[in-house]
Design a protein around this nucleic acid. Structure first.
Lengths: 221, 221
DNA sequence: TATTCAATGGGGAAAAATCCCCATTTTCCG
DNA sequence: CGGAAAATGGGGATTTTTCCCCATTGAATA
């Protein structure tokens, strides 16, 4: 049902104020949508959201200070499961998409799209519940027989994620192990696990992965 | 002279189509500006630009495929020195800003600004020739007595830049030295120079620097 | 011309990272 | 309960990185 009496209400969560405002303008110009909330991060969304007047859809940036897209998606899904979530991001790694999908995200949009695609994504998400700008992830999930195995392989444990974050520094593993409260040798195992799961061969590879996939927030972003 | 008969004509160069379009909408709504050109990278700008109808100002993204902000700024300054350049970026390192300043860029805008700030930046750049959203760089340039020394220290040689790029990989220095056609020991000198200039202590630090400052283009950006 | 300086390459050693093995404890599940 | 799997820690070797020294060459410069 494309046309409705009531407009689709949309919330935008992105720390780039300029992008948020421009998104709002673009969406408003669609005519059948209205932007009812603009937040700069997840915490800001929690503060502003009105349970008696929930948005139909949240457009969510992944990389944000204070409370990022992952935490926000998790909280939204748990608190207001009826709200559709569309992630607007520059990253498109399978790991990141899988994590977000399991957190309840309904679709992904890269930032190099045009307004028409944005509208299509919003409409499609509202009508069918899901939107993917690329088929790869769908194929991935459908082709592999044992999804659980896949998820176990692709997902990172808390310690692994912590190491991945701390590895993005000038500090040697010896120091990082102390910070994590584990021995250097235990850290070695997590390191090897990360190499295997992320398909890299060195600590530099870890750092590149973490930065490219938004695991570690860049200072100026 | 804020108000003129003819509107300020603006070109936007950014590979994120959505951002470009929204920027264009926002700027058009200012009333006294008009967007006369939208390009997705430097090469695209070269193809589209009309010498008989040059824009007054170019809003330029740094991170772009094909021809990035550095190359584009260099070409613009050499070819059409009258055009003001405003860089829209997420990076704000002194090195990056210095490089861009010496390439003729007139001002910097981080992407977390609001439309009012954007307008202020455009107006200020057109009126005074320069715009800085932060004073730090101006202070830097004014305080240091010997700018040439500073520039020599801050700028990277071709080989250093090449190493910085190649260091963002899983390959050991031994292999990188072969790729660069120099000995491992010569590479060692460039590495040490990079450590000193960029104030890092390890190869991971180099990779982080390169990614955070757009020296190496991220796959999905 | 003499000197300085950058680029080139090297020896050697210490530190760090990587990769094999292994054992113990805990946790989880059939 | 009993076994599988994960988390923890280690020994030891190899490779890579990092940091000291140093020498030679050629270009730039006082």
């Amino acid at each position: 049902m494309p046309r409705q009496q009531t407009k689709t209400s949309i919330a935008i969560v992105d720390d780039h104020v300029l992008i948020t405002q421009m998104l709002a303008t673009t969406i408003t110009n669609f005519g059948d949508c209205q932007v009812v909330l603009q937040a700069t991060n997840g915490k800001d969304l929690q503060r502003q959201i009105n349970p008696s007047q929930l948005p139909d859809l949240v457009i969510l940036d992944v990389n944000m200070p204070v409370m990022d897209g992952y935490e926000t998606a998790k909280w939204l899904t748990a608190t207001y499961p009826s709200i559709r979530i569309l992630v607007l991001t520059m990253y498109d790694s399978e790991l990141a998409m899988l994590r977000l999908l399991l957190l309840g995200v309904r679709g992904f949009l890269k930032k190099d799209i045009d307004p028409a695609t944005l509208k299509d994504a919003i409409v499609t998400t509202m009508e069918t519940g899901f939107y993917y700008s690329e088929r790869q992830l769908v194929n991935l999930l459908q082709s592999k027989g044992n999804n659980i195995q896949l998820v176990n392989n692709v997902f990172l444990s808390t310690k692994e994620l912590q190491l991945l974050t701390l590895a993005c520094s000038d500090r040697p593993y010896k120091v990082i192990a102390q910070e994590m409260g584990i021995s250097f040798k235990t850290l070695d195992h997590y390191r090897q696990a990360l190499f295997d799961k992320l398909n890299v061969k060195s600590r530099v590879g870890l750092a590149i992965y973490a930065l490219e996939n938004g695991v570690v927030r860049k200072k100026t972003e």
